[in-house]
C-alpha cells in the first residue's frame, strides 16, 4: 500500500463510517473494510478507478468533489479522508468546510510544495518542480492549488480548526529525524488530521 495510505489506515478507528474523497482504485477502503470493519463510500471521477472499485467490491460513487457534497447530510460520517486530491480542487478551502460539515474528523494528505527538492527545482533551476509526488509538467498538471505543510496548517488555524495530528514523510513515510525537525523543508508529503472548531 502507498505509504500515506498505510499511515491513514493506522489512524482510522474500528468500525468507523468513512467517506473517501478521490478514492482512486479503492485500495484504502478495501483494506479498511477488511481490517477494521469500516463501512463507507468512495467518491471518484476517474473511470478506471471506478471500475477497479466496483470489481473489488468497494462502494464507489461517480461524483466530482468540486461540485460540493450537498447530497450528503451533516454529520453523516465519522471520518472524511482525502488523499492526493486537495491540490487538484477548484477551492480547497470550501471543500475542507464541506468535509467538516459531513464528517466529525478529516484526514487530508497532499504533496508538500515546500519540500527541499521542490525548492531546489524552483530556486536553483528556476523551473516548476517535477518529482515523484508531483509527476506532471506545468502545462498538463491537474494540480492547480499547490500548497505547503505550513500553508495548510495556517489555513486550519485561520478557520479555527483543531489539528489533532500533523505529519510529513518522504515518499515512504518513514519517520526521519530531519523531517521531525524541519517538516516543511524535509517532508515530501503532508498529512493532517483535523476536527471542527470547538463550538
Amino acid at each position: 500500500m502507498r505509504a500515506d495510505l498505510k499511515l491513514i489506515h493506522d489512524w482510522v478507528p474500528q468500525g468507523a463510517r468513512v467517506l473517501d474523497l478521490g478514492c482512486g482504485d479503492g485500495e484504502l477502503l478495501a483494506a479498511l473494510a477488511r481490517d477494521k470493519q469500516v463501512v463507507g463510500y468512495g467518491l471518484e471521477i476517474d473511470p478506471d478507478g471506478i471500475t477497479a472499485c466496483i470489481e473489488r467490491g468497494v462502494s464507489v460513487i461517480e461524483q466530482d468533489i468540486d461540485d460540493g457534497l450537498s447530497n450528503v447530510d451533516d454529520d453523516a460520517y465519522d471520518l472524511v479522508i482525502m488523499t492526493q486530491a486537495l491540490q487538484a480542487l477548484q477551492r480547497p478551502d470550501r471543500t475542507l468546510d464541506e468535509m467538516l460539515r459531513v464528517g466529525r474528523e478529516c484526514i487530508i494528505a497532499f504533496p508538500n510544495f515546500a519540500y527541499w527538492r521542490h525548492r531546489l527545482y524552483l530556486g536553483i533551476q528556476g523551473r516548476m518542480p517535477v518529482s515523484k509526488s508531483l509527476p506532471h509538467a506545468w502545462y498538463d498538471t491537474p494540480n492547480i492549488h499547490l500548497s505547503t505543510f505550513r500553508d495548510f496548517g495556517q489555513l486550519c488555524r485561520d478557520k479555527g480548526l483543531t489539528i489533532v495530528d500533523q505529519r510529513v514523510g518522504n515518499g515512504d513515510h518513514e519517520p526521519h529525524w530531519s523531517s521531525r525537525l524541519w517538516p516543511n523543508l524535509c517532508g515530501e508529503t503532508a498529512i493532517f488530521r483535523v476536527t471542527r472548531a470547538s463550538r
Binding site: 471506478i50 464507489v60 460513487i61 461517480e62 461524483q63 447530497n71 447530510d73
Partner: peptide, 19 residues
C-alpha cells in the same frame, strides 16, 4: 439515478454508481 443513490447512501446500503 443520483436521487436513488443518495437515498441508498442515506439508508447505509452498499451502492456503487457510474454515469
Amino acid at each position: 439515478s443520483r436521487e436513488l443513490v443518495d437515498a441508498l447512501m442515506r439508508a447505509d446500503k452498499t451502492v456503487s454508481y457510474a454515469s
